[in-house]
């Protein structure tokens, strides 16, 4: 094995790690959105991703890829709003700490069962909008879809940031995150803002679902592991720091692929979880964050 060859392998692993990491990052970004406005999270975030991906699979055969995208985004928004209304709103109103955790986990399980009944239990192939032959850069193979994942995820997060900073409604979201009572005094319907943040959060997850599906296959059980790992990324990156999740996602994605290759695929999930445990014990607010998950 020449050293040039091993450098190529390393570069190859980095590319795959970055693509996976961006997916984790964008799902984790979704956790941040609801945490900011309501200090609650959707533990069925992985199922939101899975549903987005499967709905996309059904729609894509009818409409083609590009029309499928806005339909999936709209579906994600509705799904997120439903989760908030059914699972979270009452818990926030009664200040129940455990209520929203149980409710969002339960809804996630229901969505998974629903998906198993509609689409079956098998992994399904998702048509790729781009050629599936890899492009070669200096001997490193990059799937066109991996490039789309990286830029698509970044674009999604950037759009939400621009919305929050520039539009009056985005500012209302930030105000609600800052101080919910004071936002109400501005005439902002903060319950609606929280519903909206759930809608946005599931929308980003659904988008991540259709981005990743052509590379990984899709299916009713695809959400669980992704949702959990993205949760780890949200903790690592910090639930309150905007771009921390991108760094956290990349750290996790890259360590996973490196471990999978150099150690054993059997240990692929270990380094990320070790990292999570380390962060939780050394800096519970996340590497970049300032708020802990505990309600303040």
């Amino acid at each position: 094995m020449t050293s040039e060859y091993s450098m190529q392998v390393l570069a190859q692993l980095l590319v795959s790690g970055i693509a996976v990491g961006m997916i984790y990052g964008v799902i984790a970004f979704g956790y941040q959105l609801t945490f900011a406005t309501s200090k609650t999270l959707n533990f069925g975030q992985g199922e939101a991703l899975m549903l987005g991906s499967l709905v996309g699979l059904s729609v894509v055969t009818i409409t083609g890829y590009w029309i499928m995208l806005p339909i999936v985004l709209a579906f994600g928004m509705i799904q997120g709003a439903v989760v908030e209304r059914l699972g979270v709103r009452q818990a926030i109103k009664t200040k129940s700490e455990a209520g929203w955790i149980m409710a969002t986990i339960a809804l996630g399980i229901i969505f998974k069962n629903l998906a198993e009944n509609i689409w079956g239990r098998d992994a399904l192939k998702f048509p790729s909008p781009l050629p599936e032959a890899p492009l070669s850069f200096m001997g490193v193979n990059v799937l066109p879809m991996e490039v789309v994942i990286v830029f698509g995820a970044l674009a999604m997060m950037l759009l939400v940031e621009v919305f929050n900073r520039r539009s009056i409604y985005g500012k209302a979201v930030v105000a609600t995150a800052n101080d919910r009572d004071a936002a109400g005094l501005m005439g902002i319907n903060t319950s609606l803002v929280i519903t909206f943040s759930y809608a946005l959060s599931s929308m980003t997850a659904a988008f991540a679902g259709v981005l990743v599906a052509p590379v990984t296959l899709t299916g009713a059980s695809m959400g669980g592991a992704l949702g959990l790992k993205a949760f780890a990324v949200a903790i690592i990156g910090g639930l309150s720091s905007g771009m921390g999740v991108v760094v956290g996602g990349l750290i996790l994605g890259i360590t996973e692929t490196l471990t999978g290759y150099y150690l054993s695929t059997g240990y692929k999930d270990v380094p990320g979880l070790v990292l999570l445990l380390l962060v939780l014990s050394l800096k519970p607010s996340g590497l970049f964050g300032s708020a802990t998950i505990k309600k303040v």
Partner: peptide
Amino acid sequence: VFPTLPVADNLLL
């Protein structure tokens, strides 16, 4: 006041 927003945005809100 909304601490993470600029003065101008606080007023706009």
